[in-house]
């Protein structure tokens, strides 16, 4: 099975590194789309069905926390797996995000194996449902 991936980050550097990393991580990828912030990501979701979303927290226009909350409140996207990719290291905030349905967390800067492990963990769990 090939997967669709959505990457949401205001940094072109991180979007590019994440896209390359995802393509190299050993999982079959169908399509990767990117967005600069949560609002742009919601527009992408109008005609794209990702299997997993990698999302930053600190972004302009709509940040990652607002984006996750919008997905959770939506009937269409409430089960979409979201992995937060952020510089923030607060376990308190991560616990709050997990309670809001976030599936995982990758700390910036990340190594390729961090992303590969997370994809296998989240998509593996999804496929076992």
């Amino acid at each position: 099975m090939a997967y669709n991936i959505l990457i949401v980050d205001d940094s072109a550097l991180t979007r590019t590194v994440m896209e390359r990393t995802v393509r190299m991580c050993g999982v079959e990828i169908s399509e990767i789309r990117t967005a600069e912030h949560g609002k742009a990501a919601l527009a992408v979701l109008e005609d794209f069905w990702p299997d997993i979303v990698f999302c930053d927290i600190n972004m302009p226009v709509m940040d990652g926390l607002q984006f996750v909350q919008t997905l959770k409140d939506s009937s269409e996207w409430s089960d979409l797996p979201v992995v937060i990719v952020s510089t923030e290291g607060s376990e308190t905030r991560m616990e709050e995000l997990r309670r809001n349905g976030v599936q995982g967390y990758i700390r910036k800067p990340f190594a390729p194996e961090d992303v590969a492990t997370m994809i296998q963990q989240v998509l593996g769990a999804k496929n076992n449902v």
């Binding site: 510089t87 923030e88 290291g89 607060s90 308190t92 700390r107 910036k108 800067p109």
Partner: peptide
Amino acid sequence: LNMLCGNLLTAHFGSNPVF
């Protein structure tokens, strides 16, 4: 800078506080 800041805060204050 964003990565430097986030990681410095954890190094300085630990992983519990929210910033």
